[in-house]
Amino acid sequence: MTIDCRGKQIREINRGIRAGLASGEVEVLNPDARHNLAVALLQPGAVRIRGSVGYYCGGLMDGATVHIEGSAGWGLAESMLSGMVTVRRNAGNGAAAAIRGGTVVIHGNAASRLGVSMKGGLIVVGGNCDYMAGFMGQKGVMIICGDAGEAFADSMYSTVCYVGGRIADLGNDAVIEPMSDDDVALVESSLRTHLGEAVRATKPAAHAFRKVVAGKKLWNFSHRDWKTWQEAL
């Protein structure tokens, strides 16, 4: 099934996508970076968007797969429960924010606040991520093949991050932990699966990634850590 967005209201497009999912794959033409495309998809099935999307694409989703062949605006896949969202180019601020599960793959770069407050799921970024990625991450895994921006992994709970490039600056309570064999295996299999063999070969070797987790100093208040708290707040 094919839906051309030109001349259609966003609700009409989304109704069409939901109806089309029942019968398999839906192709979306001329998205023109419009907002709220393919949101709240609550059943399995694949949506292929031939172009760029605006804000909140793939948000509030449970179980579907959305492939975006251009870039994405703010709030990509926000609060996704399960499913998969892939972006061929770049993603805007707050991609995969507060996801509870599923997989978000960004082949280009992610802007600020990637995966903030994520509560599960997997994020794979082929390029770099910008300011404050992983802030207050509670669960889940974030893999960045390129460089991470400032305040990386600030004030996290139990999200685990892996960075293949340089880290501009670690956030409050973020610490680097040695890579275990399991970590190397997880990074390797995730990159192979989600970037493909050919692209994976262009990225750093899995053992060269650095693992960033919470130092747990902010988990419970203690007077001894007063300085850290002052800084964090």
Binding site: D32, A33, R34, H35, G51, S52, G54, Y55, G70, S71, G73, R89, N90, G92, N93, G108, N109, A111, S112, D130, Y131, G149, E150
Partner: peptide, 21 residues
């Protein structure tokens, strides 16, 4: 401010990047 503005004014296959801090 938003990619939608660029796409609606200028046709073609080009990349759009969000400015960094």
């Amino acid at each position: 401010t938003e990619e939608v503005a660029i796409r609606s004014a200028l046709p073609g296959d080009y990349a759009v990047v969000e400015a960094s801090v």
